[in-house]
Design a protein around this nucleic acid. Structure first.
Lengths: 207, 207
DNA sequence: TAGATTGTTAATCGATTAACAATC
DNA sequence: TAGATTGTTAATCGATTAACAATC
């Protein structure tokens, strides 16, 4: 194949590069060397060059990297040029906060529908996105070409819903529930375990 | 000192161990071997034993680990036996969702006050936690022994607020804003970069 | 006791950093 | 051109896995 596997460590750093490059662009900075960027980001210049060279030679000897084009390239690598249709499962506080966050749409993530087990929410909406009863979720996924589901329901309820939506061809799950989901190998799960994060903070405070 | 530094990788795994042990306890399971736990958690038994032995020998040869006492020990290691007073900065949707999440209190994290630049929210509350104007934040931190601040405001506003609260002796920041905060070395920052997480998911979907 | 399983040392693997020839 | 900086190889460092003696 020629395509070598990219390590999780590298993948996790890509969004941060993207964020810094976006900021440099906003500041009107045209070019940057790996050394300058390394000082801003507090990493080694060597790491930046190694990371980027996993995906191609974006730099120019003696010049550095063009901020604008590197920003665009990393955006492509991250898949931000592809549109994704999302659904949210769980219209609680956290779910509503995420559905209400319009900025994701700039990056191609479009929230199409919200599902909740509480039928009394039926007919309500968040930012114009309708809240629907959970038993219509399969049909909605198939009819609206949904590929990402955001899971914001209690841990005990998650696995059952995930099993159902995976059967409909959902490709990725952004999981906010406090449980590790068991899915087929070709389904992506990205976890946001808030309580784990808070415990980590708690541990670090003791030191 | 005798205390060797614990790697970030190990620290990040601790909350997951805690979660699984809590679940085992709820299932009424009394003891577990590193091998059994490794199968549940999908890691190696060797890693589990190595990780735990950073903190002490919690197991018994020929027996394994006592679920209940290991759960308690990891809770202690994570600092969950210490009470922490929190404030929230930013009463937007995400902030309210976090303030509204009562479960953190079981782990000793008690939300004492909410601050927002929008003075019209003054007098409102979330779960009985008062929303106050931002200019009272310093006084509140000092008078209420606050050690953790949760930051849920736009990236552009974060650094200014963080500078102010760090001066009042805040020990840790749970940062939900999309920016890397620059703080003195003794202040802990734990980031929850939701957009980074979504980009990671986006990248993984392409593969 | 015999079997099971830990705690820990050694071996392996992978990721980060350093160095430098290539080259703009 | 001379200086700067990349892309990439080699060296180092750290984390994970394997192995096994200790021991319950």
């Amino acid at each position: 194949m020629g395509i070598k596997a990219i390590s999780q460590a590298v993948i996790s750093r890509l969004p941060r590069y993207y964020r810094y490059l976006g900021q440099l662009r906003d500041e009107g900075i045209e070019r940057i060397s790996s050394r300058e960027l390394s000082e801003r980001m507090n990493v080694t210049a060597s790491q930046i060059r190694q990371d980027l060279n996993n995906f191609g030679g974006f730099g120019h000897q003696g010049y550095g990297y063009n901020v604008d084009s590197l920003y665009i390239e990393i955006g492509k690598i991250l898949g931000l040029t592809t549109k994704h249709n999302l659904i949210l499962v769980g219209a609680g506080n956290l779910g509503r906060a995420i559905a209400g966050y319009a900025k994701f749409e700039k990056r191609g993530f479009i929230m199409r529908g919200i599902f909740d087990i509480d039928e009394s929410l039926n007919g309500q909406d968040v930012r114009g996105i309708p809240i629907m009863p959970l038993d219509r979720i399969e049909q909605f996924i198939l009819e609206n070409d949904i590929d990402i589901a955001v899971i914001c329901i209690p841990a005990t309820a998650s696995m059952a819903v995930v099993d159902r939506i995976v059967k409909c061809g959902i490709k990725a799950i952004w999981n906010f529930s406090h449980v590790d989901l068991d899915v087929p190998r070709d389904v992506i799960v990205e976890n946001v375990h808030l309580s784990d994060s808070l415990m980590r903070l708690s541990y670090l405070m003791k030191q």
